[in-house]
């Protein structure tokens, strides 16, 4: 049997699929968030060094992970748009950017809320914080660049270049705590050794990360429908979609 890998690369095929599945990801996100927050705020014990302030971790780390991960996904779609010249890839990159920017902002915000009581400062120009701030500007720059170019296909190309060049920043963020002497602590979770935190805390964090993941999928699929509808509104296939009144 021959599989048509590009079937869902056509906006006309992807649009109904996205519409059908995205509400479910909101449901998954909410369920996982309830479980994660319950563990994080009711089950996990007080940290012996940081007291209750450490509970910010249940938002801070998942948000920071998503901010980096979404950028990589965005750059991946941008590169697909270059290689296969598929419209949908560039539309996905467009749909990811605002959510990525939001998670970057949340990572910075919760980080400063954690930094003030622990380090005595809301902000320091340390390598981890600075590179994360650059990530935020990359997202904003990507969105601004695409919004500034009227021809959507040219905007896709220009934004794609920015997304790909900016991807170099992600490993810099990730390894910044190793390469430089940062105030920011090293990673608690590592691929090569056991996590340096209590397993119940780890579970809370992983559940929240999964929840943010599901949230991102829901929001991005919903937004890519908007992008498709806007860009292809004159296409014949879209005329058949009736506005639901249910």
């Amino acid at each position: 049997m021959q599989v048509n890998w590009f079937k869902y690369a056509a906006p006309a095929n992807f649009f109904p699929l996205a519409g059908k599945i995205y509400p479910w990801f909101y449901v998954f996100a909410a369920l996982l968030a309830v479980a994660g927050m319950y563990i994080g705020f009711f089950v996990a014990p007080t940290d012996f060094q940081q007291g209750e302030a450490y509970r910010i971790i249940f938002i801070h780390v998942p948000a920071a992970w998503m901010s980096m991960f979404l950028y990589l996904v965005m750059a991946f779609y941008a590169s697909l748009g270059f290689i296969f010249n598929t419209r949908l890839s560039s539309m996905m990159a467009r749909a990811i950017a605002p959510t990525g920017a939001m998670f970057t902002f949340l990572a910075l915000w919760t980080g400063s809320m954690w930094g003030r009581p622990m380090w005595g400062a809301y902000w320091v120009w340390d390598a981890r914080l600075t590179s994360e701030l650059i990530l935020f500007f990359l997202y904003i720059g990507f969105m601004a660049l695409q919004a500034a170019i009227d021809d959507p296909r040219r905007g896709d190309k220009a934004g794609g270049v920015l997304a790909l060049v900016g991807a170099i920043n992600v490993p810099i963020i990730y390894f910044s705590v190793k390469w430089w002497n940062t105030l920011h602590q090293g990673s608690s979770i590592n691929l090569t050794r056991a996590p340096s935190m209590a397993s119940i805390m780890l579970w809370g964090m992983l559940l929240m990360a999964l929840s943010f993941w599901m949230y991102s999928i829901a929001v991005i699929l919903s937004r890519v429908q908007c992008v498709i509808a806007e860009r292809e509104r004159r296409a014949a296939w879209l005329q058949h979609i009736e506005p639901h009144t249910t």
Binding site: P16, G19, K20, Y26, C226, I241, T246
Partner: peptide
């Protein structure tokens, strides 16, 4: 998060896209 969902929902409304409800007949063309 609430703000992002709210903005997105008003965008969908403007584009006359189906509302986000978990149902079977959703988004069918």
């Amino acid at each position: 998060m609430v703000l992002e969902i709210w903005i997105l929902q008003s965008q969908r409304k403007q584009l006359k896209l189906p509302r986000s409800t978990v149902s079977q007949d959703h988004g069918n063309v």
